[in-house]
Amino acid sequence: MSADSEQRTIRCLIAKVGLDGHDRGAHVISRAFRDAGFEVIYSGLHRAPDEIIQATVQEDVDVLGISILSGAHNTLVPKVMAGLEEYGALDDTLVIVGGIIPEEDRPGLLEQGVDAIFGPGTPMQETIDFVKENAPERA
């Protein structure tokens, strides 16, 4: 029935994992996503991978944005990805990583299932467009 037409709202979790205490970037992206019409859930600072997994699964977000500036991405991201896999959430969640990720670490993260990495200076619109184009189709 066409009257059942669905209001497609993209849901995102913006997550700060690990010990770095800088969340200006996460705030800026949260606001930009909100203004783009997304529903944004912000995790708060210093989250453990378990918390991020719990939130991603329960909130059934389309997009998980992980912000890491501490350099611990090679430790933290794999944990998150493994947890998503465990709960069957990896396939239909778009995972993007933002922050300071050295060039040589990127292929490794992408291989683990990260869909995109946005470094410093990425235009906001580019990130928003990427999300809009790649947010998984929800049946």
Partner: peptide, 10 residues
């Protein structure tokens, strides 16, 4: 915009 920031999880 229909957008929202849902912060209670914090």
């Amino acid at each position: 915009t229909g957008g929202a920031v849902l912060g209670d999880r914090i």
